[in-house]
């Protein structure tokens, strides 16, 4: 059952990776990075179900909580107006 989920996640990783390396502007790459982060955090949660280990959920905690920091930093830089 979980193998089907991994196939879907595999396809999603390929598609968003394609946009990451193609994307015409930097903002496109940032959007692709954000999507990749969400997909990978889902991958971590489902694979901790696959490994059947409660402890491994802590890492997806950190992923879900902190991965938007880089997005905000890059968008503050793109916004311009740096003193």
């Amino acid at each position: 059952m979980l193998n089907f989920v991994f196939v879907l996640i595999f396809l999603a990783l390929i598609l968003s990776g394609f946009r990451f390396f193609k994307g015409p502007s930097s903002s496109d790459r940032v959007v692709a990075l954000d999507t990749l982060t969400t997909i990978i955090s889902v991958l971590l949660v489902t694979s901790s179900l696959f490994f059947d280990n409660y402890i491994l959920l802590d890492i997806s905690f950190v992923f879900a909580a902190l991965s938007f920091t880089s997005v905000i930093v890059i968008s503050r830089y793109l916004e311009g107006g740096n003193s």
Partner: peptide, 26 residues
């Protein structure tokens, strides 16, 4: 898992809003 879901709900919209605003301004 509920706490992880709450974190995702809190953080993802902030990131997308921030990208949209900054790329409009740039």
């Amino acid at each position: 898992t509920l706490i992880i879901a709450i974190f995702i709900v809190l953080t993802n919209p902030i990131g997308s809003h921030s990208i949209a605003r900054s790329s409009y301004k740039s």
